[in-house]
Design a protein around this nucleic acid. Structure first.
Lengths: 158, 158
DNA sequence: GCCAACCGGTTTCTTGTGAAAGCATCGGCG
DNA sequence: CGCCGATGCTTTCACAAGAAACCGGTTGGC
């Protein structure tokens, strides 16, 4: 922190040291890298990938609602991603027997195959990005992101 | 890290532990909080606020190009944000004498007034969000974000 | 000087997003 | 049973974002 500016009430603000900005820019840049990679190699968008990621982990069929929660994405976004994935034959969608409104999603055989191709790439890309950081640092990063996320969420809902 | 999953080549991937996802979700959530606050209290969008933040720091008139670089935003985004700010009377725009293509931007008196209102709020909100973290941790976070950003950028440009 | 490539910035066009409305189903309560 | 609010998901609508085309203005090579 700049000498003579210890309190939280400075008159000026350097964007480059402003956390929300830093976080947003870093996240965006990172997302772009992944988005491009997924798009180029697998023809997937990030929302589509996120849905597949949820369906792939555990491989259990899963109601849409659970996907919405697990991906933290908008209902609409999920709905559209699922539609596209079904069109591509990567995901199956059947209405739940016990509640006809809800839908049970699962990876198709083809989808599972693709998922198994993507996962190693995702891990590799993540490793490449985090190469400069130690595992203990990464653990701390994780905790900090969780803390920031939780607080933002708390403030966000009024 | 999960026991028995030390290498980077796991068969599965838990979205909740996947850094780009975590980062993206946290940043988005945080942005929403700020966006809502800026909008509600000052009628500004985040792109608009970023432009003002750059113009406010140092208060020196500044060519558009510099704003584009400092905010890491798209040319188009900046162009539109500036237009709106000029319409609102918060920013002045004159063509540079030495190069008629380029434009020199600055906060108007009114804009500077608003800027001085926003800065303390921004700091306060940031403080609230980071309340759970120590200053040393925050410094580390800053370094890690820089590292991730730099690597992503490097990978990004082919 | 003149023309072509270039550059700063805006406009156009396509696409993705989320809020709100819509549609179908479900569960509770009279 | 039959209504009515709640719920799961989709569609519509308005708008923001970025790619590419565009429009002066500038610069460098001849």
């Amino acid at each position: 922190m700049t000498p003579g500016a210890a309190s939280g009430a400075e008159a000026s603000l350097e964007l480059g040291r402003f956390l929300p900005y830093r976080l947003s820019v870093a996240a965006e840049c990172m997302s772009r890298v992944f988005a491009e990679s997924y798009e180029r190699r697998f023809g997937l968008t990030i929302p589509e990938w996120r849905v597949m990621a949820v369906l792939g982990q555990g491989e259990a069929p899963c109601p849409t609602q659970a996907v919405i929660e697990a991906t933290e994405m908008d209902r609409v976004k999920v709905s559209r991603a699922v539609t596209r994935l079904v069109d591509k034959g990567l995901v199956t969608r059947r209405t739940a027997p016990e509640d006809q409104r809800s839908q049970i999603l699962a990876l198709s055989r083809k989808g599972l195959g693709l998922y198994r191709q993507i996962v190693p790439l995702a891990h590799a890309l993540q490793a490449e990005l985090t190469a400069g950081l130690g595992t203990d640092e990464l653990a701390l990063l994780d905790r900090m992101l969780a803390s920031l996320h939780a607080r933002a969420r708390q403030i966000g809902l009024r």
